[in-house]
Amino acid sequence: MRKVLMDKDDIKRTLQRMATEIIERNKSVENLIMIGIIRRGDILAKRIAKIIEELTLFHPPTGSLDISLYRDDIGIKKVIEVRKSEIKEDITEKIIVLVDDVIQSGRTVRAAIDAIMDYGRPKAIQLAVLVDRGHRELPIQPDFVGKRIPTSKDEKIIVLLEEIDGKEMVGIE
């Protein structure tokens, strides 16, 4: 059974609110770089960057990050696909907003932080997620949360985005 928790408008409104919070928290948006975790995080990062531009007239640079080579379950998980990261800007002394669709254990974010440090030394890294479903296994908390969805471990959160899935929703099954 699949239940829709957020539709297209909900997602749009949520990203708008998250963008506003990011602007409020970081007075100088000129110092921001939005980096999304491949694959759905980098789509969300681009969308949030666009909203920030509409609100401030400054478009923060965006990047995409593949974390597969930093995973802690290499050799345990059977299928690991390596995709190409793309971070063109020098991240030194910048404020990185790391974006992902769902946070659960926090292990992906741990890997992403390690990966970002290999590009340089940012001033700070902040974390924005569309959905926080709980069940953390590491001491990592997001700075900006779209929606908190309490789940049991056997439930599955599904995030579909127009750019790669052809439709738009957050659901649970």
Partner: peptide, 20 residues
């Protein structure tokens, strides 16, 4: 396909990943 991802690593400041 995997090689494209590996080549990007060679252009980073730290050209090393912990995978192996």
């Amino acid at each position: 396909e995997t090689t494209f991802g590996m080549k990007e690593i060679l252009q980073r400041e730290v050209k090393k990943v912990p995978s192996l």
